[in-house]
């Protein structure tokens, strides 16, 4: 009996001690981890919108530039993770640089989170970048590499989806590419398919919202 009591008490004590130390490390790093996450997101937003951040800019400076140039619009778009506001950026001389919205959805291992930006005239993609993903390093995770993301910079957005209902297709690299085709990642078919689905869905929703909005404005007598 005494043995059993000791065993239970011992386990409770050891658990308490280790839980406490984990909690301490957690609270010690919490602030920094939150800041990192926020910064990573804001960096991506500015990157896709084309807001320039000097190389090696300190954390605070980066956040300041963000505050100055990026703002929330009252437009909302449906992403794979619910409805979110569309962001926009202004240039140094107060011109609209583009719209930016979150893209999200299930990847091969876990959720993919990123931002896509569209030019002010809604004719071209300005940029695309993922800020959170758990795809296989060296394979699916290639979607965060410049070679993949840069393909979207300045890409024309077709006014109507193709016969398969898609605005863009991600295809095998090296193959014959048609208009609106983009290279996928070799060896990561599942990730490639997921990215194709996520981008098409969100972009189509955004374009529709904007079209409706513009025609409403037009009817208002501009």
């Amino acid at each position: 009996m005494k043995d059993k009591l000791f065993t239970v008490a011992y386990m409770a004590a050891v658990s308490a001690a280790f839980t406490l130390s984990v909690a301490l490390v957690d609270s010690a790093t919490q602030k920094r981890r939150d800041l990192n996450a926020e910064l990573a997101k804001k960096r991506v937003i500015m990157e896709v919108l084309g807001v320039e951040v000097p190389k090696g800019a300190k954390l605070e400076k980066t956040l300041n530039i963000y505050e100055e140039r990026v703002y929330k619009t009252d437009i909302r778009v449906n992403t794979g993770a619910g409805e979110v506001p569309v962001l926009a950026a202004r240039s140094a001389n107060d011109e609209l640089m583009g719209y930016c919205f979150q893209v999200a959805g299930k990847g091969f291992w876990d959720m993919l989170w990123g931002y896509m930006a569209v030019s002010p005239d809604l004719k071209r993609i300005r940029g695309l970048a993922f800020y959170e993903q758990s795809e296989t390093p060296g394979l699916g995770a290639e979607i965060t590499k410049p070679w993949f993301e840069q393909q979207f910079e300045g890409k024309e957005i077709p006014s109507e989806p193709g016969q398969d209902g898609k605005l863009f297709r991600l295809v095998q690299p090296g193959g014959q590419k048609k208009e609106h085709d983009v290279d996928g990642v070799t060896g990561a078919t599942n990730t490639t398919d997921a990215v194709e689905r996520i981008l098409n869905n969100t972009l189509m929703d955004f374009m529709q919202t904007m079209r409706k909005r513009n025609s409403a404005n037009g009817a208002g007598g501009e």
Binding site: S15, V25, T29, R33, N36, A37, S134, P137
Partner: peptide
């Protein structure tokens, strides 16, 4: 319990100080 605690601490530390690599290593 001991092993898990140290692993979680390490994970938190690299999340805080090496966020890019932490992201690349994922799970």
């Amino acid at each position: 319990l001991i092993i898990a605690s140290f692993v979680i601490m390490f994970k938190m530390a690299i999340d805080a100080y090496l966020p890019d690599i932490s992201k690349a290593l994922g799970a």
